[in-house]
Design a protein around this nucleic acid. Structure first.
Lengths: 179, 179
DNA sequence: AAAGATTGAAATCTCAATCTTG
DNA sequence: CAAGATTGAGATTTCAATCTTT
């Protein structure tokens, strides 16, 4: 079964050359642009590999996110609204993800007695087993990608990316309404 | 018109805590995992902002990629196969992107005389005008995100992400057939 | 009315099949 | 038959509308 996962999907095989950048806009800081594009570029490469990785377990990033979230929750359960908030997608998306996960027995939906508008999503034994089976491989792969970096460099990278995200909030704030 | 752009789309509102990681797999290097997830996390945040940014110009990342690629090409034209290779998507995807861009007059398709299997895609005046209108804003936004980083830090970030991509090729090689 | 969940339509992207040309 | 382009079906995700419960 083909299961096309889509963490991201943007590619661009090569970073632009500096002379191209200066032909496209005046007064650009090439280092800033290249740093920005490096993040996009790196993540695109990561996403492609991750898609294949998740595919081996019949998962997508979205589906995985639901499972790992439930595993971290008290009682291994949550409402769709909570899931949507935590993994930062719409409720409609969660409905779709749950449809698939439930049909494969990885999560279960049940009614709630305290508020019958809401439902309870629970990680099943099979869902937990799938995670337990994949997580060692999963984290081993993630960590392996960083083998070229020393401990100091990993810390540096984390710090630098943190600064990038701070810059994002200032210069390109999220548009979604307040939650 | 709603134009949902999708650079990436994976979210996860928070990075996991270290105690969660160690509960999910043994012998993980938390710094490596966090560094990896920082890249994903940062790109997801970027993608969300970029979607909104591109949307203001009626573009998506895919559509923008086609336009900027054509602008950089000799004669501002290319075949769909070349576009597919350069922006690293399937030809089917390119067909879809071109359908949209052509219907809005941003690119044109014309037959080739040397090989009638192939077609020629050209950036139109309107396409070029759109790029010229958006590029200054575009690059200004990109650069602004990096204001928190010194020149040295930008260079560092570029270098570190390069190492990450090298690690990817070794530990999670692409599966696509050789081109 | 407001909140939770779902459904339906649309956008993006992939694979597999098809159609045309070489 | 190879290669270039397209079409059709499926996956993921969003928005807007709807249905149920508070």
């Amino acid at each position: 079964m083909v299961r096309r996962l889509t963490i991201l999907s943007m590619p661009l095989r090569q970073l632009p050359r500096e002379d191209q950048l200066s032909a496209e806009a005046r007064d650009v800081d090439p280092a800033a642009i290249m740093a920005f594009l490096s993040v996009l570029f790196t993540q695109a490469e990561i996403a492609r590999r991750m898609d294949a990785h998740f595919g081996r377990y019949g998962l997508s990033y979205g589906r995985y996110s639901v499972l790992i979230l439930l595993r971290r929750r008290e009682g291994r359960c949550a409402t769709p609204a909570e899931i949507a908030y935590e993994i930062d997608v719409t409720r409609a998306t969660v409905t779709g993800l749950l449809d698939g996960l439930e049909s494969e027995g990885l999560v279960s939906r049940s009614c709630r007695k305290d508020d019958r508008r809401s439902i309870n999503v629970k990680l099943t034994k099979q869902g937990l087993a799938l995670l337990d089976r994949m997580l060692p491989d999963h984290y081993a792969r993630l960590a392996a990608v960083m083998t070229n970096l020393s401990q100091a460099e990993k810390t540096q990278l984390i710090t630098l990316l943190g600064k990038v995200r701070e810059g994002l909030d200032v210069t390109m704030p999220r548009e979604t309404a307040a939650e």
